[in-house]
Design a protein around this nucleic acid. Structure first.
Lengths: 242, 242
DNA sequence: CGAGCTTTTGAACGCAGTCAACAATTGTGG
DNA sequence: CCACAATTGTTGACTGCGTTCAAAAGCTCG
């Protein structure tokens, strides 16, 4: 029952009508299991389908002229990272898995038909892409922060977003992201990433070992990262809890 | 006839039906003239209307915890920078004028009603927000480029976007943007902005004086800026002409 | 249990920032 | 139309955050 995931997601935004729920249940979804570091879609493609992350962590990225990979966003279960392909033909960025992932593909035809009949679902999808844009905006700002602060901000965002989908408890979460991947997300060298993480540990803000991030001082981390969760536009107050 | 602007904009994307054109003509639009450096909307607000830029240059920005202004995007005539407020209640960034501007405001109610009846207009607006997101993504990448390259990239984007709305000819355009504003957009100091612009002039790529930018070597500028206009998702080939 | 990542550490270098002063331009009021 | 103020642009010297290069130590997983 792969559509159950979408139903849960949309159901958390507004109360689905019986008709809407039926339409979602009847969506043909093709499920695929991918290993770590696999491209899901690649820049330049003209996708004929969208996808959502059902399990695992993925990321959007671009490759610059100098060959560097710039990670633009991380994707947690429930995210639909390439919804934009519904309206923009050529993809201007790539999306790949970080950890092994379970991905659900849905053909554009089916989504267009769904949107035509169900305006509230259209709005929900549109809203989803608007939140992506808000995250991109915040990342532009984060690029100006110095590395220590930028890393703190990124960790705050990841914790809040994972918490919003039930994958983090109050203070810790599994985080199978390498320092090299953090580097590509923050645009700093792996050496510096390593040193900044050590500083955050030394400051008593976080513990990060065995692929688990523990936030030891939420107040301190948000303050170090100049983090205000408004831009994530969460419905419940997940961003403000500690 | 302020709506004519919107009609021209949407008409360039797809052929408007008579019904669609009538609906647009009947949109109540409130026109305002603003001076330079005036806030149009401010972060934290809950707008009840959207707006489009009819004349002038505006920009979106955020203020960081250290008080720095980070410009997120420039807006040229035809842009609707806060369409997102149709679906996200709280604004997470601010928008202000750079030059004196003519702005057209449209109430959310009217836009929601328009979208409900005209799915193609909904799609066009949605598409607009998706292109904004694509620009944000590219700016994240641009933040990683070194200043000389980032400035070249920004100038390329501005010329292509101004050309797309007929405000730049093949090689030059009016550009009333100060070095301090470039600095806030690129996240570099005004001193460095000045030096980078001098380098671009010395390299024979641009001339920038008396508020007019002339691109002397388009090939060279795009190459210096690692600029590929795909992310602007222009319909015609404006991005590729020289 | 060894190959290949990933993390860690040290040292030297460089892009860009800060500070400070000055020149040029733009705008404004008399 | 000019004088003066304010903003914008330019230059030089010094500083520092983060890079690069190199090498070693720790993990992971076939």
């Amino acid at each position: 029952m792969p559509a159950s995931f979408l139903i849960r997601k949309l159901g958390s935004i507004f109360a689905l009508s019986g008709e809407e729920e039926t339409a979602l249940k009847n969506l043909p979804i093709q499920v695929a299991e991918l290993g770590a570091r696999q491209d899901i879609v690649h820049a330049g493609e003209r996708p004929s389908r969208c996808f959502f992350v059902q399990d695992g962590i993925a990321c959007s990225y671009k490759i610059t002229g100098t060959g560097d990979r710039e990670i633009l966003n991380f994707h947690v279960p429930g995210d639909m990272p390439d919804l934009q392909s519904l309206h923009l033909d050529v993809l201007d960025f790539s999306i790949c898995t970080i950890t092994p992932c379970v991905i659900g593909f849905i053909q554009h035809d089916a989504l267009h038909a769904l949107c035509e009949r169900h305006p509230r679902i259209t709005s929900a999808f549109w809203r989803e892409t608007l939140i992506d844009a808000a995250v991109f905006r915040e990342w532009i700002v984060n690029a100006r922060r110095e590395a220590y602060s930028a890393m703190a901000h990124l960790l705050c965002e990841l914790v809040v977003r994972l918490r919003a989908v039930g994958l983090a408890d109050a203070s810790s979460c599994e985080l199978r992201i390498t320092q090299s991947e953090f580097s590509d997300a923050l645009g700093i060298s792996t050496v510096h990433t390593n040193r900044v993480l050590q500083e955050l540990r030394a400051a008593g803000l976080i513990a990060l070992k065995e692929r688990t991030l523990s936030v030891l001082d939420w107040e301190g981390l948000t303050s170090a990262g100049d983090f205000d969760p408004t831009y994530l536009h969460l419905r419940n107050g997940s961003g403000t809890t500690r």
